[in-house]
Amino acid sequence: MITSDVETGRRRLAALIEGASVVLPFTGAGISTECGIPDFRSPGGVWTRNAPIPFDEFVASRRARDEAWRRRFAMEEEFGAAQPGRGHRALASLWRAGKAPAVVTQNIDNLHQASGVAAEDVVELHGNTTYALCLSCGARYELAWVKERFGATGHAPDCGCGGHIKTATVSFGQAMPEEAMRRAEALALRCDLFLAIGSSLVVWPAAGFPLLAKRNGARLVILNREPTEFDEAADLVVHADIGSVLAAFVSH
């Protein structure tokens, strides 16, 4: 069924959640837009203003590293001030209730953790922009440290080992995190209800998880403002505001 009516979508989603034993939420940028975080692909999104910097360019060029960090700090207000929205809080409620063992996300904003889901139960397929890592030794750096040194020199700092420091996100051309991908696959095969929320479902291999779950016998729900290529395969599709649909599932 495909609907754009919030109440109809909410009612049918509630019935599917009630009948499920293991729910797996899978989230994309659409769940965070009501929190003030812009998405990347839509008209007016981040990538229409600045083309993404590929991983190999970041590694090879100091100028690219400087520009990557300039952009990150320019967006700090958007990321730093953002608070979990109704969708995040609803999924945290499902997690606390024991319905959802984890949340798999394509997002890098840390809002699922901020909503109360334990960090170890948030499977981040594209990393996290709220801290940084050395690409050589893996040392963790807090953004305040990087910002201080960037501001003092105008250049992206390097690690004590000589390696380049980058936000802990996955850039174009960078390998996907193997452990996160394995966990997401195992969760997709375990669930009997897969909730694809706020994702355009065009970024592979992550976009394959909804179909993997569906082919393994799970029900598939897609909640997204715009149509996706997988709508016809889903048991329920709701083209409506995500927060409005999920607000009823927030437990206080």
Rank of each mutant, 00 (worst) to 15 (best):
C161H: 09
P177D: 13
L201T: 08
Q174W: 03
L236E: 09
R63V: 13
N128H: 05
D66K: 08
E57R: 13
G44F: 08
R70F: 11
A114R: 09
N50I: 02
V237D: 06
G45H: 01
L143A: 02
C137M: 11
T33Q: 10
R225Y: 10
G163L: 11
W145R: 11
M176I: 03
E57D: 14
A168C: 07
T105R: 01
E76W: 09
G98D: 02
R182H: 10
V221Q: 07
L236A: 10
V123Y: 06
L91I: 15
D39W: 07
R219D: 08
A119Y: 02
F249M: 09
A184V: 01
G138V: 03
H239K: 15
R71V: 12
V117W: 03
A248I: 00
A81T: 12
G154T: 08
E120S: 14
G151C: 10
D158S: 15
E120T: 06
F209W: 14
S171T: 06
P210T: 10
T130L: 12
G9E: 08
V23A: 10
D5N: 14
F26A: 11
I2E: 13
A92W: 00
S199N: 03
S32T: 02
Q106S: 08
T169F: 01
R96E: 03
F40A: 07
G138F: 07
Q174V: 09
M75Q: 14
G85E: 10
G198K: 11
A233C: 03
S61Y: 04
I165P: 06
D121E: 01
I53T: 12
F79R: 01
C137Y: 02
